[in-house]
Simulated scan of single mutants.
Amino acid sequence: MSENTSTSTTTGTDATAPLRVAVLVGSVREGRHADAVTDWFLGVARRHGGLDLDVIDLAEVDLPLVMPGWGGTPDPRATAALAGVSPRLAAADAFVVVTPEYNHSFPAALKNLLDWHREEWRAKPVGFVSYGGLGGGLRAVEQLRMVFAELHATTVRDSVSLHGPWSGLGPDGAPRDTAVTEGAAKGMLGQLQWWGRALRTARAALPYQG
């Protein structure tokens, strides 16, 4: 479901330029709930305004699980996959991760994407939309916060947590309790925009020394 939903071609680092947000879809399983959850979130994000949204679906990113050692050369499959995804990550001002919770953690495909990149995450904010069971994916988010801290990214405090999406989502894929979930999404996006614009300005003024 990879797509670029940008509605503006504005570039630059001024505070009024739309924030370029890469939305990472973390699940790659067949029959996943990620499609419905992502579509719902994108609808909220478009109404929020001020965002250029680029959806990166990890089910369409064919990265090998084994990375080359220091100085090694990636195989052709990795080179092709990185050529398709790395520039999009580098161009993003901020990220939103849509993730389920698997065994108290997040999907291996998502960790693989994170590990294949370094500078692309640095000094950029990250927000989360999680789902799964009674915990709503919160344990996956807590582990992702530690990983992104190691990658020199900043995670925003508030996140969106969808509890038991198989019963909490309606036929159209939207959460049944739209007042609560949309409020949470708007709160997270507000924080993401503040940090995204502040850090974009800071990176332009002074390169990040990570």
Rank of each mutant, 00 (worst) to 15 (best):
E3Q: 14
A59W: 05
L58Q: 03
S6K: 07
A91V: 04
R145Q: 09
H48D: 10
R200G: 04
A81P: 06
A185P: 09
G173E: 01
T79M: 15
W194C: 01
L63Q: 10
P175E: 02
A123V: 07
D115I: 11
I56S: 00
A123R: 13
A80R: 11
G164W: 02
K111W: 09
T181H: 04
T178C: 04
V141E: 01
T13G: 07
G136M: 03
M188I: 14
G135R: 01
L134D: 06
F128S: 00
R203F: 03
G132C: 09
E60H: 13
V55N: 07
P18D: 14
L113P: 08
P125N: 04
A80Q: 09
L82P: 08
A59Y: 06
W194S: 11
D52H: 10
A109D: 11
T154F: 08
V44H: 03
D172P: 06
W40G: 00
G26L: 06
W166A: 05
S105H: 10
G187Q: 12
A184I: 00
G170P: 01
R145I: 10
A174Y: 02
P175F: 01
G168V: 03
E3H: 12
G31C: 13
E150G: 04
V160D: 00
T155K: 05
E3T: 12
T178F: 02
A59L: 01
M67C: 07
H152C: 05
L134A: 13
H48L: 02
L110C: 06
L114S: 04
R139F: 07
A45D: 09
V156S: 08
H33Q: 12
S86A: 14
G12I: 05
F41S: 00
N4I: 13
N103F: 06
W40H: 13
L151F: 10
N4D: 13
D172S: 11
V23A: 09
A109S: 13
W40F: 12
A108Q: 13
G196R: 09
L134W: 05
Q193M: 11
G71M: 11
V28N: 11
D62I: 04
R157C: 08
T16C: 12
K124H: 06
L65E: 10
V147R: 01
V85K: 01
H152Y: 15
H104Q: 15
F95A: 04
D35Y: 02
V55H: 09
A45P: 06
R32T: 05
S167T: 09
S159W: 02
T181G: 04
E60P: 11
L151P: 00
V180D: 15
R32I: 05
T79P: 04
A179I: 08
Y102D: 05
L151M: 15
A179G: 04
P76L: 10
A80F: 07
P107Q: 03
